[in-house]
């Protein structure tokens, strides 16, 4: 076993990524002669690191997007960034985004290929997102690729640059539904805290009731 693929125990290292799709209604002028008549939307499915200047090519050999079987050549393989596929269509379906890491023991990455499922969205699905006049839909999800017990090589690649420095501001005001920023995390934490507090109050409430009932039971038995 090469020293490259030795794993560093007890640590994990993560890379924030964005994946999802943009979709826009097809206007007559956008249609190409080859576009089928029943296709109503043009969409792009993609996978990318959150930060633009992070290069994952040392890790990732290629990314494949498995489209619906009705598409011609449904498995699209993208070898270089940007990892994205643009198509037209009329229906929503689940796309399997598969990350292929560089194989080979000597390269030292030694990770299994990894799948992410993304439900293609063509129609507005979240009432909180701003409605756009041109019918643009963005279904973009934040997630983190977590390398548990990374190999030395992976560790080396991922520590070349701090890749978790999320921005604190949106790059533009109307990209609210397309970007994730650091305050979002804080907001979510605060929101969860509110829920936790609610639950704690409820726990206290239940416990008191339980105690009362217990006393009532004891008094009942003794009487």
């Amino acid at each position: 076993m090469s020293s490259n693929s030795r794993r560093i125990k007890f640590i994990s290292i993560s890379v924030p990524i964005l994946y999802g799709n943009h979709a826009i209604k097809l206007t007559p002028d956008k249609r190409k002669p080859t576009t089928p008549q029943d296709h109503t939307h043009e969409w792009t499915v993609f996978l990318k690191p959150v930060l633009g200047d992070i290069d994952l090519t040392p890790l990732i050999k290629k990314v494949t997007f498995k489209l619906h079987e009705t598409y011609e050549n449904p498995i699209r393989s993208i070898e270089t960034p940007p990892y994205q596929v643009t198509e037209t269509g009329w229906g929503e379906f689940e796309i399997i985004i598969k990350i292929h890491f560089h194989p080979g023991v000597d390269l030292g990455i030694n990770e299994k290929n990894f799948q992410i499922f993304h439900g293609l969205k063509l129609h507005p699905y979240n009432p909180q997102h701003p409605k756009r006049e041109n019918g643009e839909v963005h279904s973009i999800l934040y997630d983190e690729l977590v390398f548990n017990e990374p190999t030395d090589k992976v560790f080396e690649i991922l520590t070349r640059k701090p890749c978790n420095l999320l921005p604190f501001k949106l790059s533009s005001e109307n990209k609210r539904d397309q970007e994730y920023i650091r305050p979002d995390e804080t907001d979510e934490l605060n929101r969860l805290d509110v829920y936790i507090d609610k639950i704690k109050v409820e726990i206290e409430n239940q416990r008191n009731q339980y105690k009362e009932l217990e006393e009532a039971k004891i008094s009942l038995i003794n009487s």
Binding site: K9, F10, I11, I13, E111, F114, L145, N148, P162
Partner: peptide, 26 residues
Amino acid sequence: KEEEAYGLHYHGTEKLTPGVTLRSQQ
């Protein structure tokens, strides 16, 4: 803070399964 910037975390004695996962699927 800088460790966070690198996405590094030390799990101590916690049991980890080596390999890649998505944070949301952990």
